[in-house]
Nucleic acid binder design. Structure first.
Lengths: 217, 217
DNA sequence: ACATTTCCATACTGGCCGGTATGGTTCGCG
DNA sequence: CGCGAACCATACCGGCCAGTATGGAAATGT
Protein backbone atom coordinates (compact mmCIF):
# COMPACT_ATOMS: atom_id res chain seq x y z
CA UNK A 1 0.00 0.00 0.00
CA UNK A 2 1.31 3.40 -0.97
CA UNK A 3 1.33 5.22 2.34
CA UNK A 4 2.14 8.56 0.85
CA UNK A 5 -0.07 10.42 3.30
CA UNK A 6 -1.88 8.63 6.09
CA UNK A 7 -3.54 11.89 7.08
CA UNK A 8 -5.21 12.38 3.71
CA UNK A 9 -8.79 12.09 5.01
CA UNK A 10 -8.01 14.75 7.58
CA UNK A 11 -6.47 17.02 4.97
CA UNK A 12 -9.52 16.62 2.78
CA UNK A 13 -11.85 17.34 5.67
CA UNK A 14 -9.83 20.44 6.51
CA UNK A 15 -9.96 21.70 2.94
CA UNK A 16 -13.65 20.95 2.75
CA UNK A 17 -14.33 22.84 5.95
CA UNK A 18 -12.25 25.81 4.81
CA UNK A 19 -14.02 26.12 1.46
CA UNK A 20 -17.46 25.35 2.85
CA UNK A 21 -17.04 28.11 5.41
CA UNK A 22 -15.85 30.58 2.82
CA UNK A 23 -18.37 30.06 0.04
CA UNK A 24 -21.09 27.82 1.38
CA UNK A 25 -21.44 24.08 0.95
CA UNK A 26 -23.66 24.25 -2.12
CA UNK A 27 -21.22 26.51 -3.94
CA UNK A 28 -18.21 24.26 -3.50
CA UNK A 29 -17.54 21.34 -5.84
CA UNK A 30 -15.49 18.28 -5.01
CA UNK A 31 -12.97 19.29 -7.65
CA UNK A 32 -12.35 22.50 -5.75
CA UNK A 33 -11.97 20.70 -2.45
CA UNK A 34 -9.51 18.28 -4.01
CA UNK A 35 -7.59 21.10 -5.66
CA UNK A 36 -7.39 22.96 -2.36
CA UNK A 37 -5.92 19.85 -0.77
CA UNK A 38 -3.45 19.43 -3.61
CA UNK A 39 -5.04 16.27 -4.99
CA UNK A 40 -7.79 15.39 -7.46
CA UNK A 41 -11.33 14.14 -7.23
CA UNK A 42 -10.26 10.54 -7.65
CA UNK A 43 -8.52 10.80 -4.31
CA UNK A 44 -11.64 12.24 -2.68
CA UNK A 45 -13.79 9.39 -3.92
CA UNK A 46 -11.29 6.85 -2.73
CA UNK A 47 -11.52 8.14 0.85
CA UNK A 48 -15.18 9.13 0.87
CA UNK A 49 -18.20 7.52 -0.67
CA UNK A 50 -20.01 10.71 -1.60
CA UNK A 51 -20.15 14.44 -1.06
CA UNK A 52 -22.45 13.89 1.90
CA UNK A 53 -19.77 11.79 3.52
CA UNK A 54 -17.26 14.57 3.04
CA UNK A 55 -19.66 17.10 4.52
CA UNK A 56 -20.09 14.96 7.60
CA UNK A 57 -16.34 14.53 7.82
CA UNK A 58 -15.94 18.30 7.65
CA UNK A 59 -18.41 18.66 10.50
CA UNK A 60 -16.65 16.02 12.56
CA UNK A 61 -13.36 17.76 11.94
CA UNK A 62 -14.79 21.07 13.08
CA UNK A 63 -16.24 19.53 16.22
CA UNK A 64 -13.00 17.75 17.11
CA UNK A 65 -10.93 20.81 16.35
CA UNK A 66 -13.13 22.98 18.50
CA UNK A 67 -12.66 20.77 21.53
CA UNK A 68 -8.96 20.48 20.88
CA UNK A 69 -8.57 24.23 20.77
CA UNK A 70 -10.67 24.69 23.88
CA UNK A 71 -8.63 22.18 25.85
CA UNK A 72 -5.40 23.70 24.61
CA UNK A 73 -6.66 27.08 25.73
CA UNK A 74 -7.38 26.11 29.31
CA UNK A 75 -4.59 23.58 29.74
CA UNK A 76 -1.82 25.98 30.81
CA UNK A 77 -4.00 27.66 33.45
CA UNK A 78 -4.93 26.28 36.84
CA UNK A 79 -7.18 28.96 38.27
CA UNK A 80 -10.78 27.78 37.66
CA UNK A 81 -12.25 31.20 36.96
CA UNK A 82 -9.45 32.07 34.57
CA UNK A 83 -9.96 28.77 32.79
CA UNK A 84 -13.62 29.60 32.33
CA UNK A 85 -12.86 33.07 31.10
CA UNK A 86 -10.22 31.86 28.65
CA UNK A 87 -12.56 29.22 27.31
CA UNK A 88 -15.31 31.79 26.82
CA UNK A 89 -13.00 34.19 25.03
CA UNK A 90 -11.81 31.46 22.71
CA UNK A 91 -15.36 30.34 22.01
CA UNK A 92 -16.40 33.86 21.17
CA UNK A 93 -13.50 34.22 18.77
CA UNK A 94 -14.18 30.93 17.07
CA UNK A 95 -17.96 30.92 16.94
CA UNK A 96 -18.90 34.59 16.79
CA UNK A 97 -16.10 36.88 15.64
CA UNK A 98 -15.21 34.60 12.74
CA UNK A 99 -17.72 35.40 10.02
CA UNK A 100 -16.78 32.35 7.98
CA UNK A 101 -17.51 30.12 10.91
CA UNK A 102 -20.93 31.69 11.20
CA UNK A 103 -21.50 30.84 7.54
CA UNK A 104 -20.59 27.22 8.14
CA UNK A 105 -22.86 26.96 11.15
CA UNK A 106 -25.73 28.45 9.21
CA UNK A 107 -25.20 25.96 6.40
CA UNK A 108 -25.14 23.08 8.85
CA UNK A 109 -28.39 24.25 10.39
CA UNK A 110 -29.95 24.51 6.97
CA UNK A 111 -28.77 21.01 6.13
CA UNK A 112 -30.11 19.75 9.43
CA UNK A 113 -33.60 20.51 8.21
CA UNK A 114 -33.51 17.53 5.91
CA UNK A 115 -30.57 15.41 6.98
CA UNK A 116 -31.06 13.48 10.21
CA UNK A 117 -27.42 12.53 10.61
CA UNK A 118 -26.17 16.07 10.29
CA UNK A 119 -28.77 17.18 12.80
CA UNK A 120 -27.80 14.52 15.31
CA UNK A 121 -24.16 15.40 14.84
CA UNK A 122 -24.78 19.01 15.75
CA UNK A 123 -26.93 18.03 18.71
CA UNK A 124 -24.16 15.81 19.99
CA UNK A 125 -21.61 18.57 19.54
CA UNK A 126 -23.83 21.05 21.33
CA UNK A 127 -24.31 18.65 24.21
CA UNK A 128 -20.60 18.09 24.59
CA UNK A 129 -19.94 21.82 24.63
CA UNK A 130 -22.57 22.23 27.32
CA UNK A 131 -21.01 19.52 29.43
CA UNK A 132 -17.63 21.12 28.95
CA UNK A 133 -18.84 24.46 30.27
CA UNK A 134 -20.83 22.93 33.08
CA UNK A 135 -17.63 21.32 34.27
CA UNK A 136 -15.78 24.63 34.18
CA UNK A 137 -18.55 26.41 36.06
CA UNK A 138 -18.76 23.71 38.70
CA UNK A 139 -15.03 23.95 39.27
CA UNK A 140 -15.26 27.71 39.69
CA UNK A 141 -18.11 27.28 42.13
CA UNK A 142 -16.21 24.71 44.17
CA UNK A 143 -13.26 27.06 44.41
CA UNK A 144 -15.57 29.72 45.77
CA UNK A 145 -14.98 32.11 42.91
CA UNK A 146 -18.55 31.97 41.64
CA UNK A 147 -21.98 31.66 43.11
CA UNK A 148 -24.32 29.75 40.84
CA UNK A 149 -27.33 27.94 42.22
CA UNK A 150 -27.99 26.06 39.00
CA UNK A 151 -24.93 25.64 36.76
CA UNK A 152 -26.76 23.71 34.07
CA UNK A 153 -29.36 26.39 33.70
CA UNK A 154 -26.74 29.13 33.69
CA UNK A 155 -24.74 27.40 30.98
CA UNK A 156 -27.86 26.87 28.93
CA UNK A 157 -28.68 30.56 29.12
CA UNK A 158 -25.14 31.44 28.13
CA UNK A 159 -25.16 29.11 25.13
CA UNK A 160 -28.55 30.44 24.11
CA UNK A 161 -27.10 33.93 24.15
CA UNK A 162 -24.26 32.84 21.88
CA UNK A 163 -26.68 31.38 19.36
CA UNK A 164 -28.83 34.48 19.62
CA UNK A 165 -25.90 36.76 18.95
CA UNK A 166 -24.87 34.56 16.04
CA UNK A 167 -28.33 34.85 14.57
CA UNK A 168 -28.48 38.57 15.08
CA UNK A 169 -25.03 39.04 13.59
CA UNK A 170 -26.39 37.77 10.33
CA UNK A 171 -28.21 41.05 9.89
CA UNK A 172 -25.96 43.25 11.98
CA UNK A 173 -22.45 41.94 11.42
CA UNK A 174 -20.96 44.90 13.24
CA UNK A 175 -22.01 43.46 16.59
CA UNK A 176 -19.44 40.75 16.01
CA UNK A 177 -16.53 42.98 15.09
CA UNK A 178 -13.25 42.23 16.86
CA UNK A 179 -13.66 45.33 19.01
CA UNK A 180 -16.72 43.82 20.63
CA UNK A 181 -14.89 40.78 21.94
CA UNK A 182 -14.42 42.04 25.49
CA UNK A 183 -17.99 43.21 25.79
CA UNK A 184 -19.37 39.92 24.57
CA UNK A 185 -17.21 37.90 26.91
CA UNK A 186 -18.20 40.12 29.81
CA UNK A 187 -21.86 39.70 28.99
CA UNK A 188 -21.56 35.93 28.81
CA UNK A 189 -19.75 35.88 32.15
CA UNK A 190 -22.54 37.93 33.64
CA UNK A 191 -25.09 35.48 32.34
CA UNK A 192 -23.17 32.71 34.03
CA UNK A 193 -23.50 34.61 37.28
CA UNK A 194 -20.15 36.32 37.58
CA UNK A 195 -21.55 39.81 37.80
CA UNK A 196 -23.61 41.02 40.71
CA UNK A 197 -26.70 40.98 38.58
CA UNK A 198 -27.78 37.68 37.21
CA UNK A 199 -28.75 36.49 33.77
CA UNK A 200 -31.65 38.87 33.46
CA UNK A 201 -29.21 41.75 33.22
CA UNK A 202 -27.31 40.27 30.35
CA UNK A 203 -30.07 39.95 27.84
CA UNK A 204 -28.98 40.61 24.33
CA UNK A 205 -31.33 42.72 22.24
CA UNK A 206 -31.90 40.79 19.04
CA UNK A 207 -32.47 43.05 16.08
CA UNK A 208 -32.81 46.07 18.27
CA UNK A 209 -31.85 49.35 16.71
CA UNK A 210 -28.14 48.90 17.17
CA UNK A 211 -26.61 51.35 19.60
CA UNK A 212 -23.19 49.81 19.40
CA UNK A 213 -23.78 47.63 22.42
CA UNK A 214 -25.69 44.39 22.56
CA UNK A 215 -26.51 44.38 26.23
CA UNK A 216 -29.71 45.99 27.29
CA UNK A 217 -28.73 48.24 30.16
CA UNK B 1 -52.47 41.72 -25.45
CA UNK B 2 -53.70 38.43 -24.15
CA UNK B 3 -54.89 39.36 -20.68
CA UNK B 4 -55.54 35.78 -19.72
CA UNK B 5 -54.37 36.27 -16.16
CA UNK B 6 -53.31 39.64 -14.81
CA UNK B 7 -52.43 37.98 -11.52
CA UNK B 8 -49.92 35.61 -13.06
CA UNK B 9 -46.89 37.05 -11.22
CA UNK B 10 -48.74 36.57 -7.94
CA UNK B 11 -49.66 33.00 -8.83
CA UNK B 12 -46.06 32.25 -9.68
CA UNK B 13 -44.83 33.82 -6.45
CA UNK B 14 -47.37 31.76 -4.52
CA UNK B 15 -46.31 28.54 -6.18
CA UNK B 16 -42.67 29.38 -5.65
CA UNK B 17 -43.24 30.06 -1.98
CA UNK B 18 -45.21 26.85 -1.55
CA UNK B 19 -42.55 24.67 -3.17
CA UNK B 20 -39.64 26.51 -1.61
CA UNK B 21 -41.14 26.00 1.82
CA UNK B 22 -41.78 22.34 1.17
CA UNK B 23 -38.50 21.22 -0.33
CA UNK B 24 -36.06 24.08 0.04
CA UNK B 25 -35.14 26.70 -2.52
CA UNK B 26 -32.12 24.86 -3.89
CA UNK B 27 -34.15 21.72 -4.50
CA UNK B 28 -36.87 23.37 -6.56
CA UNK B 29 -36.44 24.04 -10.27
CA UNK B 30 -38.25 26.68 -12.26
CA UNK B 31 -39.95 23.95 -14.26
CA UNK B 32 -41.49 22.64 -11.09
CA UNK B 33 -42.65 26.08 -10.00
CA UNK B 34 -44.22 26.66 -13.40
CA UNK B 35 -45.85 23.25 -13.37
CA UNK B 36 -47.27 23.92 -9.91
CA UNK B 37 -48.77 27.15 -11.22
CA UNK B 38 -50.21 25.38 -14.25
CA UNK B 39 -47.90 27.07 -16.75
CA UNK B 40 -44.44 26.48 -18.21
CA UNK B 41 -41.02 27.97 -17.75
CA UNK B 42 -41.45 30.32 -20.67
CA UNK B 43 -44.16 32.06 -18.68
CA UNK B 44 -41.88 32.35 -15.67
CA UNK B 45 -39.12 33.97 -17.69
CA UNK B 46 -41.56 36.37 -19.24
CA UNK B 47 -42.59 37.72 -15.82
CA UNK B 48 -39.25 37.39 -14.02
CA UNK B 49 -35.74 37.96 -15.21
CA UNK B 50 -34.12 35.14 -13.28
CA UNK B 51 -34.60 32.65 -10.49
CA UNK B 52 -33.27 35.20 -8.03
CA UNK B 53 -36.05 37.56 -9.03
CA UNK B 54 -38.59 34.84 -8.39
CA UNK B 55 -37.08 34.10 -4.99
CA UNK B 56 -37.36 37.76 -4.03
CA UNK B 57 -40.92 37.81 -5.31
CA UNK B 58 -41.70 34.78 -3.16
CA UNK B 59 -40.26 36.60 -0.14
CA UNK B 60 -42.25 39.74 -0.90
CA UNK B 61 -45.38 37.63 -1.28
CA UNK B 62 -44.77 36.00 2.08
CA UNK B 63 -44.17 39.34 3.77
CA UNK B 64 -47.30 40.90 2.27
CA UNK B 65 -49.38 37.86 3.04
CA UNK B 66 -48.21 37.82 6.61
CA UNK B 67 -49.32 41.39 7.22
CA UNK B 68 -52.57 40.78 5.43
CA UNK B 69 -53.36 37.80 7.61
CA UNK B 70 -52.39 39.66 10.75
CA UNK B 71 -54.62 42.60 9.92
CA UNK B 72 -57.47 40.31 9.03
CA UNK B 73 -57.01 38.57 12.36
CA UNK B 74 -57.31 41.69 14.49
CA UNK B 75 -59.78 43.58 12.34
CA UNK B 76 -63.01 42.13 13.76
CA UNK B 77 -61.95 42.77 17.36
CA UNK B 78 -61.94 46.08 19.17
CA UNK B 79 -60.56 45.21 22.58
CA UNK B 80 -56.82 46.11 22.49
CA UNK B 81 -55.63 43.22 24.64
CA UNK B 82 -57.66 40.72 22.62
CA UNK B 83 -56.24 42.16 19.43
CA UNK B 84 -52.74 41.62 20.76
CA UNK B 85 -53.50 38.11 21.86
CA UNK B 86 -55.09 37.19 18.55
CA UNK B 87 -52.15 38.61 16.64
CA UNK B 88 -49.73 36.64 18.76
CA UNK B 89 -51.64 33.42 18.31
CA UNK B 90 -51.74 33.89 14.57
CA UNK B 91 -48.04 34.69 14.46
CA UNK B 92 -47.22 31.58 16.42
CA UNK B 93 -49.26 29.46 14.06
CA UNK B 94 -47.70 30.96 10.98
CA UNK B 95 -44.09 31.31 12.04
CA UNK B 96 -43.59 28.51 14.56
CA UNK B 97 -46.15 25.74 14.35
CA UNK B 98 -45.85 25.52 10.58
CA UNK B 99 -42.76 23.44 9.93
CA UNK B 100 -42.65 24.36 6.26
CA UNK B 101 -42.59 28.02 7.13
CA UNK B 102 -39.63 27.39 9.39
CA UNK B 103 -37.87 25.77 6.44
CA UNK B 104 -38.51 28.81 4.29
CA UNK B 105 -37.24 31.18 6.95
CA UNK B 106 -34.12 29.13 7.41
CA UNK B 107 -33.46 29.18 3.68
CA UNK B 108 -33.94 32.93 3.57
CA UNK B 109 -31.49 33.39 6.40
CA UNK B 110 -29.00 31.19 4.63
CA UNK B 111 -29.43 33.18 1.44
CA UNK B 112 -29.03 36.40 3.40
CA UNK B 113 -25.46 35.43 4.09
CA UNK B 114 -24.47 36.22 0.54
CA UNK B 115 -27.34 38.20 -0.95
CA UNK B 116 -27.64 41.77 0.24
CA UNK B 117 -31.08 42.36 -1.20
CA UNK B 118 -32.58 39.31 0.45
CA UNK B 119 -31.02 40.35 3.73
CA UNK B 120 -32.39 43.87 3.52
CA UNK B 121 -35.78 42.49 2.62
CA UNK B 122 -35.91 40.39 5.74
CA UNK B 123 -34.67 43.28 7.87
CA UNK B 124 -37.42 45.46 6.51
CA UNK B 125 -40.00 42.79 7.18
CA UNK B 126 -38.75 42.29 10.69
CA UNK B 127 -38.89 46.02 11.35
CA UNK B 128 -42.44 46.26 10.13
CA UNK B 129 -43.51 43.37 12.32
CA UNK B 130 -41.90 45.06 15.30
CA UNK B 131 -43.71 48.32 14.58
CA UNK B 132 -46.94 46.39 14.23
CA UNK B 133 -46.59 44.81 17.66
CA UNK B 134 -45.38 48.02 19.30
CA UNK B 135 -48.58 49.62 18.11
CA UNK B 136 -50.69 46.83 19.58
CA UNK B 137 -48.86 46.99 22.89
CA UNK B 138 -49.15 50.75 23.11
CA UNK B 139 -52.87 50.51 22.52
CA UNK B 140 -53.22 47.94 25.26
CA UNK B 141 -51.21 50.14 27.60
CA UNK B 142 -53.33 53.19 26.83
CA UNK B 143 -56.46 51.22 27.58
CA UNK B 144 -55.02 50.32 30.95
CA UNK B 145 -54.98 46.60 30.27
CA UNK B 146 -51.20 46.30 30.37
CA UNK B 147 -48.36 47.88 32.28
CA UNK B 148 -45.24 48.13 30.17
CA UNK B 149 -42.61 50.73 30.93
CA UNK B 150 -40.78 50.19 27.63
CA UNK B 151 -42.95 48.74 24.85
CA UNK B 152 -40.16 48.70 22.28
CA UNK B 153 -37.90 46.72 24.52
CA UNK B 154 -40.69 44.33 25.46
CA UNK B 155 -41.57 43.69 21.83
CA UNK B 156 -37.93 43.14 21.00
CA UNK B 157 -37.64 40.54 23.72
CA UNK B 158 -40.79 38.84 22.51
CA UNK B 159 -39.58 38.71 18.91
CA UNK B 160 -36.21 37.41 20.06
CA UNK B 161 -38.01 34.64 21.88
CA UNK B 162 -39.87 33.69 18.71
CA UNK B 163 -36.65 33.47 16.74
CA UNK B 164 -35.06 31.51 19.56
CA UNK B 165 -37.91 29.02 19.64
CA UNK B 166 -37.72 28.73 15.86
CA UNK B 167 -34.04 27.96 16.05
CA UNK B 168 -34.48 25.47 18.84
CA UNK B 169 -37.34 23.76 17.04
CA UNK B 170 -34.90 22.79 14.33
CA UNK B 171 -33.41 20.24 16.69
CA UNK B 172 -36.45 19.65 18.87
CA UNK B 173 -39.45 19.89 16.54
CA UNK B 174 -41.75 18.62 19.27
CA UNK B 175 -41.62 21.98 21.04
CA UNK B 176 -43.57 23.38 18.09
CA UNK B 177 -46.29 20.76 17.98
CA UNK B 178 -49.85 22.10 17.74
CA UNK B 179 -50.48 21.16 21.35
CA UNK B 180 -47.90 23.70 22.48
CA UNK B 181 -49.69 26.64 20.91
CA UNK B 182 -51.36 27.86 24.07
CA UNK B 183 -48.22 27.58 26.13
CA UNK B 184 -46.15 29.47 23.59
CA UNK B 185 -48.68 32.27 23.30
CA UNK B 186 -48.89 32.53 27.07
CA UNK B 187 -45.13 32.74 27.34
CA UNK B 188 -44.92 35.46 24.73
CA UNK B 189 -47.64 37.41 26.49
CA UNK B 190 -45.71 37.12 29.72
CA UNK B 191 -42.61 38.43 28.04
CA UNK B 192 -44.60 41.41 26.87
CA UNK B 193 -45.54 42.07 30.50
CA UNK B 194 -48.97 40.61 30.75
CA UNK B 195 -48.11 38.26 33.59
CA UNK B 196 -47.22 39.50 37.03
CA UNK B 197 -43.61 38.61 36.49
CA UNK B 198 -41.83 40.34 33.67
CA UNK B 199 -39.72 39.08 30.80
CA UNK B 200 -37.12 37.47 33.00
CA UNK B 201 -39.66 34.85 33.97
CA UNK B 202 -40.40 33.89 30.42
CA UNK B 203 -36.99 32.84 29.27
CA UNK B 204 -37.05 30.03 26.79
CA UNK B 205 -34.47 27.33 27.35
CA UNK B 206 -32.73 26.81 24.05
CA UNK B 207 -31.56 23.26 23.58
CA UNK B 208 -32.26 22.40 27.15
CA UNK B 209 -33.16 18.81 27.88
CA UNK B 210 -36.74 19.08 26.79
CA UNK B 211 -39.22 18.63 29.57
CA UNK B 212 -42.19 19.31 27.34
CA UNK B 213 -42.23 22.96 28.25
CA UNK B 214 -40.00 25.69 26.94
CA UNK B 215 -40.34 28.14 29.76
CA UNK B 216 -37.85 27.97 32.56
CA UNK B 217 -39.90 28.11 35.70
C1' DA C 1 -58.60 43.65 -42.47
C1' DC C 2 -53.98 43.73 -41.17
C1' DA C 3 -50.16 44.71 -38.28
C1' DT C 4 -48.49 44.88 -33.75
C1' DT C 5 -48.01 43.93 -29.06
C1' DT C 6 -48.83 40.89 -25.19
C1' DC C 7 -48.46 36.61 -23.18
C1' DC C 8 -47.29 31.98 -23.00
C1' DA C 9 -45.75 27.07 -24.86
C1' DT C 10 -42.25 24.21 -26.98
C1' DA C 11 -37.88 22.95 -27.92
C1' DC C 12 -33.29 23.41 -27.39
C1' DT C 13 -28.56 24.64 -25.58
C1' DG C 14 -24.70 24.62 -22.61
C1' DG C 15 -22.41 24.43 -18.40
C1' DC C 16 -21.68 22.68 -13.99
C1' DC C 17 -20.82 18.87 -11.13
C1' DG C 18 -21.59 14.35 -8.79
C1' DG C 19 -20.24 10.08 -9.82
C1' DT C 20 -17.57 6.27 -12.38
C1' DA C 21 -14.30 3.72 -15.10
C1' DT C 22 -9.76 3.00 -15.81
C1' DG C 23 -4.95 3.42 -15.82
C1' DG C 24 -0.64 4.21 -13.42
C1' DT C 25 2.55 4.33 -9.44
C1' DT C 26 4.25 2.92 -5.03
C1' DC C 27 4.55 -0.16 -1.34
C1' DG C 28 4.13 -4.65 1.24
C1' DC C 29 4.65 -9.59 0.97
C1' DG C 30 5.76 -14.26 -0.27
C1' DC D 1 11.74 -10.67 -8.16
C1' DG D 2 7.04 -10.77 -9.34
C1' DC D 3 2.25 -10.22 -7.60
C1' DG D 4 -1.33 -7.95 -5.71
C1' DA D 5 -3.22 -4.44 -2.95
C1' DA D 6 -3.37 0.42 -1.61
C1' DC D 7 -3.49 4.95 -3.27
C1' DC D 8 -4.18 8.49 -6.47
C1' DA D 9 -4.55 10.81 -11.36
C1' DT D 10 -6.93 11.25 -15.76
C1' DA D 11 -10.60 11.05 -18.56
C1' DC D 12 -15.14 10.62 -19.30
C1' DC D 13 -20.28 10.21 -18.69
C1' DG D 14 -24.85 11.75 -17.82
C1' DG D 15 -28.32 14.20 -15.52
C1' DC D 16 -30.14 18.29 -13.89
C1' DC D 17 -31.38 22.84 -14.68
C1' DA D 18 -30.90 27.94 -15.58
C1' DG D 19 -31.37 30.41 -19.39
C1' DT D 20 -32.60 31.26 -24.53
C1' DA D 21 -34.64 31.10 -29.05
C1' DT D 22 -38.56 30.74 -31.42
C1' DG D 23 -43.20 30.03 -32.62
C1' DG D 24 -48.06 30.68 -31.97
C1' DA D 25 -52.51 32.40 -30.20
C1' DA D 26 -55.23 36.08 -28.49
C1' DA D 27 -56.13 40.75 -27.83
C1' DT D 28 -55.44 45.69 -29.29
C1' DG D 29 -54.67 49.38 -32.19
C1' DT D 30 -55.81 51.90 -36.83
Amino acid sequence: MARTSPQMPVRLAQSAFALFSRRGIANVSLDQVASHAGVTKGCVYWHFQSKDELIKAACAHYYRDFHRRMNAEIAPVRDPLKRLERALRRSVRICLLDAENRVFTMDIWSLSLRDTEVRRGWQQFYDSVREFYIGLVRAAVLSGQMEVDNPERAVNLMLEAIEGIKLRAMFEPQICSPAEENEIVKSLLEILGCGKRAAKAARFGFNQQHTGEYRTP
